[in-house]
Design a protein around this nucleic acid. Structure first.
Lengths: 104, 104
DNA sequence: TATATACGCAACCGATTGATTTCATAATAT
DNA sequence: ATATTATGAAATCAATCGGTTGCGTATATA
């Protein structure tokens, strides 16, 4: 079982789930209504998201509310960091070039 | 063919390729030396990365140098933006709470 | 010109994925 | 107590994935 965040966010339905529960915790049934798929399929996606700790359960009677673990999302941000450095660098270079051209 | 960036970065080998060529353009052969897999397998990964425009080819004689399209990486950053807002908000709230506790 | 090198592409294969169907279980409502 | 509702879990299936092997082609070298 290769359960990491990157594999988790690879699926468009899972990304949509993440976006939905980022705003407020939701039950599997409520989530399923937003998609063109069965409740069970959504449940399976939630299991994957739970396994890689992107999502937290909150039991409330017979309902289970799923909430986004926002902090876990930062791991993607952390991976992006290395490239952010590069694209900012390039932006700086472009900036300097433009400044240089202006001077002339 | 479901070829989007999120699916592209789901594979750990592809993420490693991205990291490697972020520093400098490389040929498939040079890349393959870094992995425990065949040149053809790397080539296949490069094809996927090329298809979703995360990578650009630069022909040079019989060699093909693959270079990272850093700008494309920003699309992941853009998707993360919505959550960044949330986690900064939470951090602010924690900050205010701490300030409040200090006052007392 | 013959050979070696760098590479992409197609065929194939086992493992994984995402979905459905069916079932079991626990909480709530009648 | 019985029916209903909310849910997870297991079995199953077609599609996709990541890998290998074998081939064709273009460029470089002998």
């Amino acid at each position: 079982m290769r359960r990491d965040i990157f594999q988790a966010i690879a699926d468009p339905t899972r990304r949509a789930i993440i976006t939905l529960i980022a705003l407020q915790a939701m039950t599997p049934n409520a989530l399923a209504e937003h998609f063109d798929t069965s409740r069970q399929a959504v449940s399976k996606h939630l299991r994957i998201l739970t396994e890689c700790e992107l999502v937290r359960q909150e039991h409330k009677g017979r309902e289970i509310y799923y909430q986004l673990e926002v902090n876990k999302m930062k791991e993607i941000d952390k991976w992006l960091q290395q490239f952010r450095k590069i694209w900012e660098e390039r932006f700086d270079n472009l900036d300097k070039l433009l400044a240089k051209m202006k001077k002339k």
